[in-house]
Design a protein around this nucleic acid. Structure first.
Lengths: 210, 210, 210, 210
DNA sequence: AATGAATGAGTATTCATTCAT
DNA sequence: AATGAATGAATACTCATTCAT
């Protein structure tokens, strides 16, 4: 989700229109504003002002404010799912897989902070089919994530006496919560946090405990 | 456009006004609406309609909509802090203390679901001094929570090589996230979830590991 | 439908509010504007400016612009129906009854010109249940009007070989069309026009023709 | 927001553009929409979508939305005038002439229903010179129509004691109103309705009455 | 001949809040 | 303690029209 570089310049160097830049500038501005102040209190006016285009241009590119919110969710969830699927493909043992997964997850959290915030705090403002579409993708994400635990149990590497779903949701919560307190440039990098969390989670999960 | 007004709530049995009931009805309605739909998209009109009173009554009891949001936060955080302080008072060993804490935390989550949701999703809409007041209480909560870990390390019961803050925030995240998926009447009670989480957390924290 | 006398004075002489005057001023202004320029091109802004109140006051009294249009239709149709029913009550012979009816109809047209214009030109802008409610009243009006012809035929006073419905709709058309060209203060009064129409209609309807 | 564009209409079989077809498709779409929903609430967007072309094409063919409304009026009034002039040319006696006229008038009403509706309900939305041009043609139509009555009186065939203008406007109203209730495929054809109306009108007009 | 990106003024409606009673 | 009329500013969205290509 690269930040806009062309604030307010919807015209291409050749003098003609640059619709793709206009569109991206609007997405970038909206993402930042939704993330920092919230979807409901961000006006279309503010978005277009931040993007340097007129309100008309907004509605040329998007059906509605909610439409743009849905787009932002969709792009983000596609990214998350791609990342998750990639981590699952590598043929490693369950512990290594989990470690990779948390690293990827927290790397995303660190890199796409606004997206993560919008996803956690603003998804409730999607309605109807837009909400359902988001929910389906999110459920797919959860399902794939929990599979990592389940497979570890099936392979006899993780303890079978802990409910996989509860344990998985606990680990997911650890990671999700990071966006509330993580600040780039802080004492630990996202990777280091992921490794601490992995260690904690695996201590609880690994079967070879006394 | 006359509104349907008295669902009868605010009048006392004796026929006079019942200010405390009116006030509480407003708080209850607001809490439910803020929790289910969000603070920003809930109008004072909706709150008063749900409470069965007029808009005038609202402004008789509260300075503004944000004032009511602040009140809701304040009451909830006071409750959380009291619960946390009580759990810390009992002179137990760190592991037992953590277990008690998680039980209390998740009991609150289950019992005050709307409050928890409002706290996590809507606190950003507090401004100025109201935001600061909330932040101070929340920081105090985090501080006390992390102390449990720190004291466990100081007493030599918890591993000293894991950063207490990161580990604590991880555990906090596990618990905070519960409000996203917990449904009363589900397979596990809040207490059972707390115990699973405790076991996982303690496995990661307890020093006596190989 | 008396015209507003208090343009722009929503406050009563005693200094308090005068909601009924505000409401009536809005209805009057809307009626005039809908009649002269059309419902669709009349903005709520224009209505409130003409009435001397703010937009907020408009929405305090009416749900929507269409709601006000519906109200105007309703009041007018109630008036028309009352007039029609009264004319039907008098126990006269069919010819006299028809004459009375046309007089009453054209008197209304002359007196409530804006209402008539709005009814004929703007009723299509009612939607859903509001349209159906208008349609029901209008159908009732047509039904009662056509009954006058049918009863004349049944009583053997009007020719039985002309289709009552077509003849009645023809007479109705004569009268309805008047609003297109009638100007108060013109050569003929509404009553005189009604009498000319009656004579023409009765010539066509009366059975005692060679 | 790319619109669904080419429903294929505007391209000629040879693959090039077919401007006359585009133009006609726009006129047809506009006529139908203006007739069914009204000029003011029909957007250029809707017209072009219904015609399967883009907005640019619209403004290539017409100066403005009002320009197209004027064109529709102009074409319709030319048609009506031609029809009226033809009916007047035939050297018949006044009664036969009136009968022919009503037949022609109602045949038009039945055949060009949308045009008739637009003419009666939407002409008020023409402004300035466009309105004047429409008014001139309409006045010419009325003048010619009333002449039929006047000539009947002059020739001593119609009663001289009824005001020719009022009687004529009555008859015109009968016919104009037909568009409000006529449905093709109903019990009577337009011609039959015309004959009933002629009979009624002539009964009132013919001098040889007792 | 036709496109589609963009504008800018306008629309209906909502809303937190005030205040005289 | 509570009402309800009223405000005024803001909101999402629409629309006729322009213009470079």
């Amino acid at each position: 989700m690269p930040r806009a570089t062309t604030r307010g310049r919807p015209r291409s160097p050749t003098g003609g229109y640059a619709p793709e830049q206009t569109r991206q500038a609007l997405i970038d501005s909206a993402l930042e504003l939704f993330g920092s102040r919230g979807y409901a209190v961000t006006s279309v006016q503010e978005i277009t002002e931040a993007a340097g285009v007129t309100k008309g241009a907004f509605y040329h590119h998007f059906e509605s404010k909610e439409d743009l919110l849905a787009l932002i969710h969709d792009q983000f969830l596609d990214l998350q799912l791609a990342m998750l699927r990639e981590a699952l493909l590598r043929d490693e043992d369950p512990a290594a897989r989990l470690r990779e997964l948390l690293r990827a997850l927290l790397a995303t959290t660190a890199r796409y902070q606004a997206n993560v915030t919008v996803f956690y705090l603003e998804r409730r403002h999607l309605t109807g089919e837009r909400f359902e579409a988001m929910r389906r993708k999110r459920d797919e994400f959860d399902r794939l994530f929990l599979q990592v635990i389940e497979r570890g149990i099936d392979e006899g590497k993780f303890r079978g006496d802990l409910d996989a779903r509860i344990a998985g949701l606990g680990i997911l919560g650890m990671c999700a919560w990071v966006h509330q307190w993580y600040r780039p440039g802080g004492r630990y990098t996202a990777e280091e946090i992921a490794d601490i969390f992995s260690e904690m989670a695996l201590a609880g999960l690994l079967a070879e405990r006394s």
